[in-house]
Design a binder for these strands. Structure first.
Lengths: 116, 116
DNA sequence: TTGTTCTAAAACTATTTAGTTATATAATAT
DNA sequence: ATATTATATAACTAAATAGTTTTAGAACAA
C-alpha cells in the first residue's frame, strides 16, 4: 500500500457519514438512494461521499439497470490495519520497556518468573 | 471511543508527514526540532502537525527545560483498530458468503470436503 | 542583563472539503 | 416518443487544512 493510498483511506474513514455508509454496506450491497435515505443530506452529497470511498478503494460499484449498487471492499481497510499493526506493541503496552525491565531482572536475580 | 475521536484520529493519520512523525516517535520520544529536522518544512508547520496529533490523542507532551518532548500514545490507535476490526471478516474474505455456500453444500451432498 | 535556544502564535494565502441547488444523462417503462 | 427513476455533474459557497513568514514568549546561559 502506497502512502497516497493510506492518505486516501484514512481521509475517507475520517468522516462519520462515510463510516456509517460502510457500516450499512457491511450488511449487504445497497443503491445510492438506499444509502442516502437515513441521512439529512442531499443525494448529490451522498454521491460525493461514495466517490471518496471509491477512490480510496473502500467500495466498488456495479451497474444494474439505472442503479449503481455499492459493495464494500476489504483490501483498503486491511492496508490501514496493517499499517497500524506496526504500533501494536505500543498500544498494547510498551513491550520494549517491559522486555528491558524483565531482562535486567533476570540478569540480577535467579528466579526468572516469566508471568508478570 | 466517540465519533468525534474517530474523526480526529483518522484525520490525523491521513497525512504522510504525521504518519512519519509517529514512526519516528515509535523509536522514542523526541523534541519538536528533532522531529522537524528530516522534513523540508518550517518548524511552525511541524508544530501544527503536532497539535493535530495531540488533539487526536496520538501523542502527549512533556516540558523539560525549553524543550517539549513528544511521546507516542497508543490508545487512539487502539480505538481506530478496534473500529476497523468490525470489518475484519470482510477484509479477510467474506466469510458470511463462504459460510452460506458451505452450508448449502453440506445440505445437498454428503462428502463435505472442507478445503476449497 | 543580554543573548540564545526552543517552541508557539499571529496573520496571511492557496487548496481542499463538504455541503447546497439546479441540471444533465442514462436506463427503464408507458 | 415521452415520462419516470436513479445517479452524476456543474456551479457555487463556507469552512477547514496545510503551508508560509514574522513575531512573541519562556527557559536557560553568559
Amino acid at each position: 500500500m502506497t502512502e497516497a493510498q493510506l492518505d486516501a483511506t484514512f481521509a475517507a474513514l475520517a468522516d462519520p457519514t462515510r463510516r456509517a455508509i460502510l457500516a450499512r454496506l457491511a450488511k449487504g450491497d445497497a443503491s445510492v438512494n438506499e444509502l442516502a435515505e437515513p441521512f439529512a443530506m442531499s443525494q448529490p452529497a451522498i454521491s460525493k461521499h461514495l466517490k471518496v470511498l471509491e477512490k480510496a478503494g473502500l467500495i466498488s460499484r456495479q451497474q444494474i439497470a439505472q442503479k449503481r449498487p455499492c459493495h464494500i471492499e476489504g483490501e483498503a481497510m486491511a492496508g490501514a490495519v496493517s499499517w497500524l499493526e506496526r504500533y501494536r506493541e505500543i498500544w498494547e503496552g510498551n513491550y520494549r520497556r517491559l522486555d528491558a525491565l524483565l531482562a535486567s531482572m533476570q540478569a540480577s536475580s535467579g528466579t526468572g518468573s516469566k508471568d508478570a
